[in-house]
Design a protein around this nucleic acid. Structure first.
Lengths: 336, 336
DNA sequence: ATGAAAGCGCTAACAA
DNA sequence: TTGTTAGCGCTTTCAT
């Protein structure tokens, strides 16, 4: 392995000077700089990042902790984060917890204070979990997409409550009355808030009914199972609000397999607007999250914290409005 | 930060002993071990991984380099890799190159020999690219899913040639004759080999025609555009072999928008069997790649190389057969 | 079984 | 402007 020492020897200067050169500390004379660069090139020297990190007491690594790498929402979020990070010379370590709070905990415990200099996390669970370890790490954290009772830090999140409220109101305005909600995991604030939005819209229109509520989790399978139960129990349902697009996809499959048509027999609306939603048949009406932008925002905020350009005291919540994307999965009833 | 030194002082032993304890080097007496563990617990000590890496000259980090995090195929591959890695105490750094060979190169150059102790890569490009840097890193590499002329190392890959050949033969056996191929990127061996498989089946049945060949890339948009052109040019096509499911999804959209039905008017078959394929309408007939298993295989091979349990001299190619999954996107013509 | 000390490659403070 | 050197926290060899 070529070290800074070899370069120094070859260039006929000291290690300190080489260090100054490779760190762009502009104090070195042009002529020595040239000599050093020449030696670096000839030896094909690459600074050892580990040694640098140990010496500096920080790394250029960021951890991104996501709950479900399989939901296309998260790869897109990751792209938003990493595209921004890369322009600033940071690497990302991506950790997939598979919605497993224990796994999440193990990883967080392994996240040594020196391994990463920042964390962007979409927590698997909203409660019960003890994030004290994270706070003790004393490294900047930004929370995205999901919130947790025990994690209090800068957050970038879509307005789940309003998005759900808008979605359900759209359904109601289209003339639907029996509107089922297929909730995500009760352990997430995301699902809870979307439920609250649904409930508010339903109550305001005197449509609320306890029986319309189904709790599951944010997977295709869960969407399928919940919808299957709905279809068994109700002779007639007008529409369903799926807590995310993944659930909607599962539900659509169940609806189809039961010989029902979308939207003629049942209307459905989703949440997220993942890439596949517009390609479904029928294309899914949904609430779009600007997920890529949420990712880059989170990255930008994190980097500001890391580089000390932002007050660490003030915890900010950035709440971004979703947007209703009307496609073909919701029927307009006569007179609506 | 609590260091090994603090622990040593508190336990009344030397740092060397503490090091032996935390590394499970069984030479320490039970009583000192107890003292050390007690101190570790009381101080909530976590070993500094950076320092350990520097000292040992290796890390427990693996880099996974994928070309398209947006294609659900890759998140699933990543899951296969990381699930295996985690059980062995390794972390994964995931790098998404967005099919950009330059970006890939920049990352690889940044991959310091000490930053990761192994690499699993699905190269963005099959030729032209100079992977000398990678070889010079002298760290174990495993190639997955895609191959490259300039990268010669252990490889885990599906039998693209045979998979395509099987797919097209299935189409032919169903009575189709005008079979278009929607190829992926000409820069990838994957696309090239699937093309060769198609060509072989077509030639063997005297069905080959130059006009049936469309080159694009492995994206939904590309699938859509290619299919659109096909539909403009041909008054009648029997079936299309899409080089992967993502292309198939785009093509299906184009077919639908042109007022044609699948499979009544046009049959289509894909490759990969990503999770969404069975949920399309109609569910997509395709060649399944055991992608999760390919991921864990790659991880297992890599770890063996890292831990020196395998001969680094012998380069192995593990070629795994895909499996034809028959669903509803291919019509059986009368008499077939 | 335990301790002392050298070193991993780099940065940064200080001296020259 | 350049050189020297003491760490960063840990592992590992060599004495004891």
């Amino acid at each position: 392995m070529i070290t800074i020492k070899d370069v120094a020897k070859k260039a006929g200067v000291s290690v300190g000077t080489v260090s100054n050169v490779i760190n762009n500390i502009d104090i070195v004379s042009e002529s020595t700089k040239r000599k050093v660069f020449k030696a670096i090139k000839e030896l094909n020297f690459k600074p050892n990042i580990i040694a640098r990190s140990l010496s500096k007491g920080k790394t250029d690594n960021i951890a991104i902790i996501v709950p479900e790498i399989n939901n296309p929402f998260f790869p897109e979020l990751i792209r938003g984060i990493t595209d921004f990070l890369e322009t600033k010379g940071y690497y990302a370590i991506i950790i997939n917890t598979d919605n497993n709070a224990e796994k999440e905990e193990i990883f967080i415990n392994g996240l040594n204070s020196f391994l990463v200099s920042g964390i962007i996390i979409a927590p698997a669970d909203s409660k019960g979990k003890d994030f004290r370890v994270l706070s003790e790490l004393k490294i900047p954290i930004v929370i995205v997409d999901r919130e947790s009772d025990n994690l209090n830090d800068d957050t970038v999140i879509v307005n789940n409550h309003k998005g759900a409220y808008d979605a359900v109101n759209y359904l109601i305005n289209c003339g639907h009355k029996i509107i089922i909600i297929l909730c995500g995991s009760n352990h997430t604030k995301t699902a809870q808030n979307r439920y609250i939005g649904w409930r508010k819209a339903m109550e305001e229109n005197n449509l609320f009914n306890d029986d319309y509520i189904y709790w599951g989790d944010f997977t295709i399978d869960s969407g399928y199972k919940m919808m299957d139960e709905v279809l068994k129990k109700f002779k007639k349902v007008d529409a369903v609000f799926a807590s995310n697009d993944i659930i909607a996809i599962g539900a659509m499959q169940a609806i189809r397999e039961n010989g029902l048509r979308i939207p003629e027999d049942i209307s459905i609306i989703g949440f997220d607007d993942i890439y596949f939603s517009k390609l479904l048949s029928p294309p899914l009406t949904t609430i779009r999250q600007p997920v890529y932008e949420i990712g880059s925002m989170a990255a930008e905020i994190l980097l500001k914290k890391i580089e000390g350009k932002s007050e660490l005291k003030n915890i900010c919540r950035y709440v971004i409005d979703g947007e209703l994307i009307i496609r073909d999965s919701v029927a307009k009833k006569a007179g609506s």
